[in-house]
Amino acid sequence: MVRQRKVPLRKCVVTQEMKPKQSLIRIVRNKDGEVSVDLTGKMNGRGAYVSRDLQTILKAEKSNVLARHLNTEIDSSVYEELKQLVDSDE
């Protein structure tokens, strides 16, 4: 009998939906306070997940939800990188 592998789920900080980790983008703040987009999902630091969806990213930028989750200022370049990632996916 083949056991189904458990799919790791994470919650999008904007929509509050539980989704498979692969369908989300992780944003991470390291101990130096630098915020970056974590494509590997393995970087050290405090992480927050956002859906791979342009509307969700725009909503995150507008509501400042990432700044609250990571307890730091989020540079606009991080949001630009997220938008480019989503554009390249579609």
Rank of each mutant, 00 (worst) to 15 (best):
M1G: 15
V2D: 11
R5S: 15
V7C: 12
P8E: 14
L9C: 09
R10A: 13
R10K: 09
R10N: 10
K11T: 15
C12H: 01
C12Q: 08
C12G: 02
V13D: 04
V14Q: 04
V14R: 08
T15W: 11
T15M: 10
Q16L: 11
Q16Y: 12
E17W: 12
E17N: 10
K19D: 10
K19W: 01
P20K: 04
P20L: 10
Q22D: 15
Q22I: 11
Q22T: 08
S23W: 11
S23D: 13
L24T: 05
I25E: 00
R26H: 07
V28E: 05
R29H: 06
N30Y: 07
N30W: 06
K31P: 02
K31C: 07
K31E: 08
D32H: 12
D32T: 14
D32V: 08
V35D: 07
S36E: 11
V37Y: 02
V37F: 09
V37R: 08
D38F: 06
L39H: 13
G41C: 03
K42H: 09
K42M: 11
K42G: 05
M43F: 08
M43K: 15
N44G: 15
N44P: 14
G45W: 05
G45A: 08
G45M: 01
G45H: 02
G47Q: 07
A48V: 04
S51H: 07
R52M: 12
R52T: 11
R52Y: 12
R52W: 05
L54Q: 11
Q55Y: 02
Q55M: 09
T56N: 09
T56H: 00
T56Q: 01
I57Y: 00
I57N: 01
L58A: 09
L58P: 01
A60G: 02
A60N: 00
K62S: 09
K62W: 04
S63E: 06
S63G: 04
S63P: 11
N64S: 13
N64G: 15
V65K: 03
V65F: 03
L66H: 01
L66D: 00
R68N: 08
R68S: 08
L70V: 01
N71G: 12
N71Q: 09
T72E: 03
T72F: 02
T72I: 08
T72Y: 02
T72V: 10
E73D: 13
D75V: 08
S76M: 04
S76Y: 00
S76I: 12
S77L: 07
S77F: 04
S77E: 13
V78A: 00
V78R: 11
Y79L: 01
Y79I: 04
Y79G: 03
Y79M: 02
E80G: 11
L82A: 00
L82G: 03
L82V: 09
K83S: 00
Q84C: 15
L85A: 07
V86K: 00
V86I: 02
V86H: 02
D87K: 14
S88L: 11
S88F: 06
S88W: 02
D89F: 09
E90A: 10
E90M: 09
E90I: 13
